[in-house]
């Protein structure tokens, strides 16, 4: 199918883009999720603002052990980044499992986050890294813990006029991490994914177990007593996963527990 009719505006600067968003426009970055959703008419926005040419939103940098990834940085850029390969290779691995070469050549980290699909690859990793979303409008900017960006199935917490500018997270010497997913197809959308990162504290992020990606705070807290208590804390969570022809809720939760155990063992042992 073809997308329903919509208006299109090419933003030449952030103020343009923000003002369009304040009028209800949806930002178009690589479009690898958005255009697909528009073609299937799951989404029918009236106005798109193309932020693809805002070069300031591109690139990966590090300043006093804090990494900043611009929202338009593509999955292929994440995979190739020597800095990320050295500091957070499990983020590169999660990016390398998104779609295929062609999709990764266009899809961006900002799109992956803002589309807020519960099964997206990058949110669990960013949650486990205690990442911050840098969000800006023409008037102001603010920083939000990344997990607070996820409001529900494909719903993000950006308010009118706001655009995700970058994600930032601290890296620590000797930091370890793991990304695990179960996907019915090679490089397909995972049923469930889990990421664990060590650092100043251990972060645990999961996808596919609720209407949006989650931080498992109780599991994180229980980790001071070891992996066993952490898994018990996982069992005590009230997940509400998607259910579809590929897998039911119970199965996804079971898989989530296995992936969590493996990720914890990899990071902690």
């Amino acid at each position: 199918m073809r997308p329903a009719s919509f208006g299109y505006q090419l933003a030449s600067n952030l103020i343009d883009a923000s003002q369009a968003c304040a009028r209800g426009a949806i930002p178009l970055a690589g479009g690898q999720s958005l255009i697909a959703a528009m073609k299937s008419r799951q989404m029918t926005p009236e106005l798109l603002v193309d932020i693809g040419e805002l070069r300031d939103l591109r690139g990966i940098s590090i300043k006093s052990e804090r990494i900043r990834i611009g929202a338009l940085t593509r999955h292929c850029d994440l995979i190739r980044s020597e800095l990320l390969k050295e500091k957070v290779p499990w983020l590169c691995e999660a990016a390398s499992l998104i779609g295929d070469v062609q999709i990764r050549n266009r899809g961006s980290i900002g799109g992956n986050v803002c589309f807020a699909d519960p099964r997206a690859n990058l949110p669990p990793v960013l949650i486990s890294l205690n990442a911050t979303a840098v969000v800006g409008s023409s008037e102001s900017s603010r920083e939000v813990p990344i997990e607070n960006l996820f409001q529900g199935f494909r719903e993000n917490a950006l308010v009118a006029g706001e655009i995700l500018l970058a994600v930032e997270f601290d890296v620590v010497e000797g930091q370890k991490g793991s990304y695990r997913e179960l996907s019915p197809q090679l490089n397909g959308v995972p049923l469930v994914n889990v990421s664990v990162s060590s650092g100043n504290s251990i972060g645990v992020g999961v996808g596919g177990l609720n209407s949006c990606p989650l931080r498992l705070i109780r599991v994180e807290e229980a980790l001071v007593d070891g992996i066993g208590p952490a898994l018990e804390a996982f069992d005590g969570e009230a997940f509400e996963p998607l259910e579809d022809l590929q897998a039911g809720a119970k199965y996804r939760i079971k898989v989530g527990r296995v992936l969590l155990r493996r990720a914890l063992e990899e990071v902690l042992n």
Binding site: Y8, L28, G31, Q32, I35, K39, S40, C76, N105, R106
Partner: peptide, 25 residues
Amino acid sequence: EGICGACTIFLNGESVKSCLVLAVQ
């Protein structure tokens, strides 16, 4: 729908699926 790759082309030297790209892009 962006799966099969039969529409793959080079855009600025990189392979992309042209069914997931708006012409205006």
